[in-house]
Amino acid sequence: MTRIGSSSLDVLPLSLGGNVFGWTADRDASFAILDAFTAGGGDFIDTADSYSAWVPGNSGGDSERIIGEWLASRRPEGVVVATKVSQHPEFKGLAGANVRAAAEASVTRLGVEAIDLYYAHFDDESVPLEETVAAFGALVTEGLVRYTAVSNYSAERIREWIRIADELGVARPVAVQPHYNLVHRNDVEEHIVPLAQEFDLSLVPYFALAKGFLTGKYRSTDASAHSSPRAAGASAYATTQGLQIIDALEGIGRTHGVSIAATALAWLRAQPTVAAPIASASRVDQVADLLDGARVELSADELDQLDRVSEWTPAAV
C-alpha cells in the first residue's frame, strides 16, 4: 500500500482511470471492470466531472454517475475516489462559486458524503489563484472534500498555490496529476518531481500507458490504422526510440511473467514521488495486467535499462 502525500489515504499503488466509463465502456462493462479491479485488491478510482462530455449523447458527469451507481450497488469498503473540476460544460473554470457548485454536483452524482481527493483539473489563469485556493480550502474545512490536489499545473503555479494556502491557513494540496510515462519524461522529471519532493506531494500520473502505446499493441508507425478511438494518439509514440522501449519492456516483462503494460506501470511506480499511476481498462480482461503493474517489483538493473532506453536530454541551464 502507498500513502498519498501527507494525507491519510493509503492505497494500492495503481489508480483505475474512469475516463472510459460511459465512453468505450458502457454501464455493464464499467461495473464488470470495477468489480474485477476491487476483487483484485484495487481501491483507488480516478475520474472527473467532465468525463465523458465529448461523447455524442453525453453531457458530462457520465463517468461519475456510473461510479456512483456502482458504489451504491456494491457498497465497497475503503475505496478512494478522486474527481476533478474545471472542464464540465456546466461548470467551466475555477471561480470560487463554480468550484463549490461543481463539487456539490460531483458529490451528488457519486453518492458520497465527501470527495476523497479533489483536483483542480486545469489551471484557470482568468481567475485569481487566491480565489481558487480559498474555494478549495473551504471545501475541506466544511467537509465536502477530504483532500485537494492539482492536475496539469506548472511547477511555478503549484508553488504559488502552496504559498497562498499557507497564507490563508487552508489545506495544501497532497497530490499532483501530470502527464508522465516512459515516452514522456522531460518536464515532469525536470520540474514537477523536485517540487513534489520539496513539499511532500505524491504524483498520480495520467497517460501512464501513453494512450495505449505502452501496452505493446502498436508496434509500427501505421498504428493509426487501428480502429481504437485512441489509436491515433498512441501512434505518435511509434518512433524508433519508442519501439526500442517496447522491446525492452517485453524482455523484462517476460522475466517476471507479466505483460508489457504491467512492466511499464512498474517502472513508473518506481519513480521518485510517484504514488499510483492511472491506467484505464475498456474490457474486464485488461484489468489483471493493470493489477500486475501495481505489484511486480523491477530490479535496479531492470529500472536502469528502461531509464537508458528512454533517456532524454535535460534542458540547458
Rank of each mutant, 00 (worst) to 15 (best):
R3G: 07
I4R: 11
D10M: 10
L12F: 08
P13G: 06
G17K: 08
N19V: 14
T24N: 10
A25L: 07
D26V: 10
A36E: 10
G40L: 06
G40I: 04
D46L: 02
S50M: 14
S50T: 11
Y51V: 01
S52L: 04
S52K: 01
V55T: 12
N58Q: 12
N58H: 11
S59P: 00
S59Y: 10
G61E: 00
G61R: 02
S63Y: 06
E64L: 00
E64I: 01
I66K: 02
G68K: 07
P76Q: 14
E77F: 06
S86F: 05
E90A: 13
K92E: 10
L94N: 07
A95D: 13
G96K: 08
V99N: 08
E104Q: 04
R109T: 05
V112Y: 08
E113A: 12
A114I: 10
A114G: 12
I115G: 04
I115P: 00
A120R: 03
D123Q: 13
D124T: 11
E125W: 15
S126C: 04
P128H: 13
E131C: 11
A138G: 11
L139E: 01
V140S: 05
T141P: 00
E142D: 15
L144D: 07
V145S: 11
R146S: 08
T148M: 03
A149R: 01
Y153E: 09
A155T: 02
R157K: 15
I158M: 13
E160P: 02
W161C: 12
I164L: 15
G169C: 05
A171H: 04
P173L: 14
V174M: 07
V176S: 09
L182Y: 03
L182C: 07
H184P: 00
H184A: 15
R185W: 10
D187N: 14
D187T: 14
H191G: 04
L195N: 09
E198K: 14
L201C: 03
S202F: 04
P205D: 00
G212K: 06
F213E: 01
T215E: 04
G216F: 01
R219N: 01
A225H: 07
H226A: 15
H226K: 11
S228A: 15
S228N: 14
P229I: 12
P229L: 13
A231N: 11
A232Y: 07
Y237Q: 08
T239A: 09
T240H: 05
G242M: 02
G251T: 13
I252H: 11
I252G: 13
V258P: 03
A261Q: 05
A264E: 08
L265W: 05
L265E: 05
P272G: 08
P272M: 08
P272E: 06
T273N: 02
P277N: 09
S280T: 13
A281Q: 06
S282D: 14
R283P: 02
V287H: 11
V287T: 07
S299D: 07
D301K: 13
L303T: 13
R308H: 11
